[in-house]
């Protein structure tokens, strides 16, 4: 059930109380902003892993 990783995307993205904070800041971005931007490639990677596992053998 590799699809569980897709559920993880929802959990990370909707964990608002966790990321609604100023610190630690990164390159001048408060945590709230850089964390959510950083989630985008993380989500993309998780979906890619699911894709590879499900379609890996196909040409």
């Amino acid at each position: 059930m590799i699809k569980i990783l897709l559920l993880l995307v929802f959990v990370l993205v909707l964990a608002v109380p966790f990321y609604n904070r100023m610190t630690p800041a990164l390159f001048g971005f408060p945590f709230f902003y850089w964390f959510q931007i950083a989630l985008v490639p993380v989500a993309s990677l998780l979906i890619y892993i699911v894709y590879r596992v499900e379609h890996g053998g196909e040409k």
């Binding site: 897709l6 995307v9 993205v13 909707l14 989630l39 989500a43 993309s44 699911v50």
Partner: peptide, 20 residues
């Protein structure tokens, strides 16, 4: 302010939905 940034989580969770 910050509430406008909902566009970001919004446009992330669309993709597991698209995939499934």
């Amino acid at each position: 302010g910050a509430v406008g940034f909902f566009a970001l989580p919004y446009t992330v969770v669309i993709y597991p939905i698209l995939y499934l």
